[in-house]
């Protein structure tokens, strides 16, 4: 069951095309990554889903039906450029934003208290926002995004501005929301977080979809037959020009050697050759990181 379906959406601004025939589907309960360099059109797509702007052509379906203005109450949106009223008290601010999303006041107050407790912010409830540290403000913003129990959560660079401890807490909360049935659309440059929590991605570049699919599958598709090999003791890897080449550039801090199999050589053949010719202790296939795939895809299409 797909929660969001975007079919062939086009959006033009005077002078340039922000989205050019973009299609994607986000299954219910999925954590979906929306990737792309700056200016690729991610924010425009997110704004279209949020009903802030409207597409020139194409369809956006939410839960199987064309999206309408009232659907914004089912969406929680954390924009990349965060912002709240600096002079407003934390509690009043969260309740106000929850009520704007259609939540009754009494429910909003109760939820707000629960969330503040979970983030250890209860004592700050009646303080003005400007009195809080940057990290605490980010947490308040997160609460304001999720308090009305939206079925769809849209996070634009959610981890920017968080320290590692808070990032971890945020990640846990996001997974908890997913387990609670929410569908999550992520827009980010942080490829480590994509590998860690996204199940599927769409990569947009120059207003077009250039890569789409399951994260594990994409990494399989982009693998370059590189294998990390470690040998017993201080044994060195023998050369075998017919089968593989030893790579000079390997990730910083990686132990052992990296070899690249020649075309046509299977992993099976390589293992048996190495087993015969040296004292093999470790052998693992290296999948490309999403970071590498991102850079390769974006630069090759330019």
């Amino acid at each position: 069951m797909n929660f969001i379906e975007i079919n062939d959406v086009v959006k033009r601004y005077s002078g340039h095309t922000a989205l050019d025939g973009v299609s994607l589907t986000v299954p219910q309960g999925c954590i979906y990554g929306l990737l792309g360099p700056n200016g690729a059109g991610k924010t425009t797509l997110i704004r279209i889903i949020n009903r802030i702007t409207h597409q020139d052509s194409g369809d956006v379906l939410l839960d199987g039906r064309p999206i309408v203005d009232e659907d914004v109450t089912r969406i929680g949106y954390l924009p990349e450029e965060r912002g709240l009223y600096k002079k407003m008290k934390v509690g009043e601010q969260i309740v106000y934003l929850a009520r704007l999303k259609g939540m009754p006041k009494s429910v909003a107050v109760k939820e707000m208290n629960d969330w503040l407790e979970r983030f250890e912010l209860t004592e700050w409830r009646d303080k003005k926002l400007e009195a809080l540290s940057k990290g605490m403000q980010q947490k308040v913003q997160f609460i304001a995004t999720v308090i009305h129990r939206p079925q769809l959560l849209i996070f634009d660079e959610p981890f920017s501005g968080f320290d590692p401890v808070n990032s971890e807490q945020l990640k846990r909360e996001i997974l908890r929301l997913r387990d609670g049935g929410s569908t999550i659309l992520f827009s980010t440059h942080n490829m480590e977080s994509v590998e860690a929590i996204c199940e599927q991605i769409t990569l947009i570049n120059h207003s077009k979809v250039v890569l789409q699919g399951n994260v594990a599958q994409i990494r399989q598709n982009y693998k370059k037959n590189i294998i990390a090999v470690s040998l017993a003791g201080d044994e060195t890897l023998p050369q075998c020009d017919g089968m593989f080449t030893v790579m000079d550039d390997k990730p910083v801090g990686a132990s052992g050697e990296y070899i690249k199999l020649n075309d046509g050589v299977t992993v099976r053949e390589a293992v048996s050759w190495l087993n015969q010719n040296c004292n093999l202790t470790g052998f693992s296939e290296v999948l490309p990181s999403m970071n590498e795939i991102f850079i390769e895809t974006v630069t090759s299409k330019q």
């Binding site: 934003l97 704007l100 999303k101």
Partner: peptide, 8 residues
Amino acid sequence: IVEVIVSS
């Protein structure tokens, strides 16, 4: 904040 508000 305006982007948060106009998403509501």
